[in-house]
Amino acid sequence: MSAPGRKGETVWALTGRRFLKHRLAVVSLGVLAALALAALSAPLASALLGVDAGAVDLFNRFQGASWAHPLGTDEIGRDILVRLLYGGRISLFVGLTAAFASAVIGTMVGLLAGYYGGRLDAFLMRTTDGVIALPLLPLLIVLAALDLGKIGLPEAVATSEYISLYRIVVIVALVGWTTVARLVRGTALALRERQFVLAAEAQGASALRIMTVHILPNLASPIIVATTLSVGNVILLESVLSFLGLGIQPPIPSWGNLLTNAQELIFEAPSLAFYPGVLIFVTVIAFNFLGDGLQDALDPRATERRG
């Protein structure tokens, strides 16, 4: 699948050309940009429609679509469209930050294990295997149910409005780093025997410098691909936890917790359950296609190996 480089073409132009060949990835990038823009302009939509995201209107429950409420209203008369847009801000924020945090932890663990090898490598990789082997969701539920006051967080922090947001980012990062760690470790293990690393060592470069300046840049492609793919997974995980009532806490809307009440109202208002799920689905599949496209563009050898 890899396109041969043309004469005088830079690496970036070649990468861009390969990416554009993956049509689904290009479409996905557009879809994600549109979703992000829509989510960012949530306050604008709210102002244009003249409705507040949290405004309760008990006389107008379960309204159908209208000019005032393009997607209708929910069980206590709040505008569904505006809440979906605000929910998108939260879900995208959690997906991006938690995936980034996981990548940072995974890169550090993988670099240390791959560069130093030996006992440290064995210890870190056994820990990684251990985390991978755990039944994830049941344990995440325990973590999400913890009383933050009991682990010594100050009262003001533990009860602040956005604590559920930070908590979910931390929880996901705590378990999400394993893929990147394994990937980085494997590549770092091979890179540290290469001549440019040995040359740097011979010149007396410190371990930190070799890891960050010489090895890390060569790992950028697999890390970027894995992180893109993990954004989708994080969004799915956040939505599951929020759906179960353990993730983002109402009244902050997220695509997951918008579905929490939908199950009880499934006979009265099936459409309430429909929209948030569609948005999660579209976002996650777009991130997966984007990751696939980036892999074709940045790491063509891996694609050849995978077919």
């Binding site: 989708g232 799915l236 599951v240 499934i266 006979f267 099936p270 359950a273 429909f274 799920g277 689905f281």
Partner: peptide, 29 residues
């Protein structure tokens, strides 16, 4: 396959309930 990986599992379950238990009424919810 990509669609299967990306669909939120609980939402898929809700949609199945809506179609088969609410609309068609052929299976228990």
């Amino acid at each position: 396959a990509f669609a299967g990986i990306s669909v939120p599992p609980f939402w898929l379950a809700l949609m199945l309930i809506i179609v088969f238990a609410v609309i068609l009424g052929v299976l228990p919810a």
